[in-house]
């Protein structure tokens, strides 16, 4: 394998209901940095049906080139069809790095592609860097249940591949009008060649919580004692106009659904305000919220590790503190609003 032949950083761009999800835009931001450090191109790879127009967005978020596979066979994500496109593209244009979101689609596709290439694949990366002269990708991730961080290298194979967690990289501010090169490709694949068929897509009608998009999160832990006690979290979230988050132990106890879980096996969040109530602050929880703008912790144990990871802490009983907070906050806000009206 001649490493000289492999050049450029690629990002697999996901598409959902005609839009590019934020994780792909974040990866373009991260990929741009790697590409600049290496002095190589950043490319996006877009696979789907009627998705060509999305190339413009990919350019605006930092790509120089977009490879497009726009064919009816790609209407639904299927491992076998998408894999074929990506394998053909990679073998033809030889990138040195390919990044995927650590989403269910990204992980599924990356695992299959890495096996066939074959090459190394680092899962759930949270930090990325590249050696300027060798192009060696330094992909770091939490290991052993978040107890340590490990840097994973793939020295002898190209391309190097990694899936990257959502919400840990930063998207660049889009540059409207920024353009680049579109390279259209096609795979010769017939429907009969694919062994799976999507029969139906069922959307859940209940509106899903998106804690990863919330500006204010009030999260509760096992310290609230019971499902009833956990209502306190909902009350404060209501008062602040925030979204409810939870530790894993709370989810496992069945006080709230998994969609609310913050942390390593839940969602990574970056709200402007994160309030942790009755959460001890295990490392697996911290990794999911440590990049929040303002972190406030309420816990009755002054030794709780959460106090090492917050901007402001209150040592006290949540059932004493939080009701007072709700009351005072509501009062203060109504005063604010009155004075606001007065100013106009």
């Amino acid at each position: 394998m001649d490493f000289q032949d492999y050049q450029g950083v690629w990002v697999f761009i996901e598409e959902k209901d005609g839009e590019i999800p934020s994780v792909s835009l974040e990866l373009l931001g991260a990929g741009r940095k790697l590409a600049d450090k290496r002095g190589v191109e950043l490319a996006g790879i877009l696979i789907g049906e009627d998705i060509k127009h999305l190339a413009q967005t990919v350019f605006e978020y930092g790509a120089d080139t977009v490879y497009v596979y726009d064919q009816p066979i790609f209407k639904h994500y299927r491992t076998e069809s998408f894999m074929k496109a990506l394998l053909e593209c990679s073998n033809k244009y030889k990138p040195e790095i390919i990044l995927f979101g650590a989403t269910s689609t990204g992980k599924d596709l990356a695992s299959a592609v890495a096996t066939d290439l074959p090459t190394g694949l680092t899962a759930d990366t949270t930090e990325l860097d590249v050696e300027e002269d060798t192009g060696l990708l330094l992909a770091s991730r939490p290991a052993f249940g978040g107890n340590i961080m490990a840097t994973i290298l793939c020295k002898k194979y190209r391309p190097q591949m990694a899936t990257v967690r959502a919400k840990v990289m930063k998207a660049l501010p889009p540059q409207p009008g920024r353009t680049g090169k579109v390279i259209e490709e096609k795979v010769s694949l017939k429907e009969e060649d694919i062994r799976t068929k999507v029969l139906e897509i069922v959307k859940e009608t209940t509106k899903k919580v998106r804690i990863d998009e919330a500006d204010i999160i009030v999260a509760g832990g096992k310290g609230l004692g019971s499902a009833e006690g956990f209502q306190l979290v909902h009350q404060l979230a209501n008062a602040l106009g925030g979204t409810v988050g939870a530790s894993r132990d709370v989810v496992e106890a069945g006080w709230i659904e998994h969609g609310h879980q913050v942390g390593q096996t839940g969602v990574t969040v970056t709200p402007k305000i994160y309030i942790a109530i009755g959460i001890s602050g295990a490392i697996q929880h911290i990794v999911g919220m440590k990049n929040s703008g303002l972190i406030i912790a309420i816990n009755k144990d002054s030794e709780a590790p959460i106090f090492d990871s917050c901007h402001y802490g209150i040592v006290g009983d949540a059932f004493e503190i939080v009701p007072v907070l709700i009351e005072q906050f509501t009062q203060a806000l109504s005063k604010e609003e009155v004075s606001h009206v007065g100013e106009v």
């Binding site: 074959p118 090459t119 190394g120 694949l121 680092t122 330094l138 939490p142 290991a143 978040g146 340590i148 961080m149 490990a150 840097t151 994973i152 290298l153 793939c154 020295k155 002898k156 194979y157 490392i283 911290i286 990794v287 440590k290 972190i295 002054s302 106090f307 090492d308 990871s309 917050c310 901007h311 402001y312 802490g313 209150i314 040592v315």
Partner: peptide, 18 residues
């Protein structure tokens, strides 16, 4: 193909104000 080159303890965030 992958090798672990380095392991380290996740950095402790700085403690804030009580």
């Amino acid at each position: 193909p992958t090798i672990v080159s380095k392991v380290w303890a996740p950095p402790k965030p700085e403690a804030g104000e009580i």
